[in-house]
Amino acid sequence: MTASQVFLQQLANGLTIGSIYALIALGYTMVYGVIQLINFAHGDVFMVGAYMGLSVCLWLGLEGAAPGAAMAWGFVGVIGAAMFGCGMLGLGVERLAYRPLRRAPRLAALITAIGVSFFLQNAVMLIYGATDRRFPPLVPSIRWEVGGATVTALQVVIWASAGIMMLGLQALVMRTRLGAAMRATAQDPTACWLLGIPVDRIIALTFVIGSSLAASGGVLFGLYYNTVNFHDGYLTGIKAFTAAVLGGIGNIPGAMVGGLLLGVLETLGAGYLSAQWKHVFAFVVLVVLLLFKPTGLLGERVADRA
């Protein structure tokens, strides 16, 4: 492979993992936007989504399905079921854990989020075991040569799914009444309440949407790496959070850009500099960016107080 082919290949791989980061980052950024909470449990919701997808796969008997219509519908069914399941999980978590703390100190909600994170991780460990679980392939292993780089059907599916979700979200937020209510709540919850917008319901819905996007990311993650583990939520979650900050936390297009950018930077860094330091790049990028442009790439104002 020539140098430019290697670069193209790295770019394709980076965009793939970057799409997954972006899907998770959206949940972080939306929740931060409406209630200024760094939702540490979000990475674990992503992991639960992957396991829900796995369960549906096994339940539908998609383990050895032949490529074709059954497999395609299987993929849609699995991702849909995981998104629905995690949406309900997000709703429950918001209702039981976060809503009672709406008027409490901000740090209290942060600690609650950590508690939720422990709870979800250990619940999954108890149900599915602590070892890696194999995620059955739902996309036929076709590969194409594009300009010397190899692109798999799975990668195309991941790009397409992530693209559809993001366009859908963008349409929802910018073009519907619901989206207008969400944007208004992010700006000023008290004024919204005075205007008769059901603020609590909007916040709950933000959790539902963010959690289902994370679940879709979880299923795609499982398909891409072929395994899932109850620990996966931790590092991927922190990186997705980095991506959200990178784009300017609270900013929806920012999270998409940040996710893709982080995926590409990390893959290029691992490829050209050192694979061992791969995980460090994400954090170095984060720190350097914040020190020189504290509002992220597509800036947004954040809370001043701890």
Binding site: V245, W277, V280, F283, V287, P294, A306
Partner: peptide, 19 residues
């Protein structure tokens, strides 16, 4: 940086040191 951004920068430093 200050506020939540300080939290995030220190998170980054913590992970960089460990890694």
């Amino acid at each position: 940086v200050r506020g939540d951004y300080l939290a995030i920068v220190t998170l980054g430093f913590g992970e960089i040191v460990r890694l």
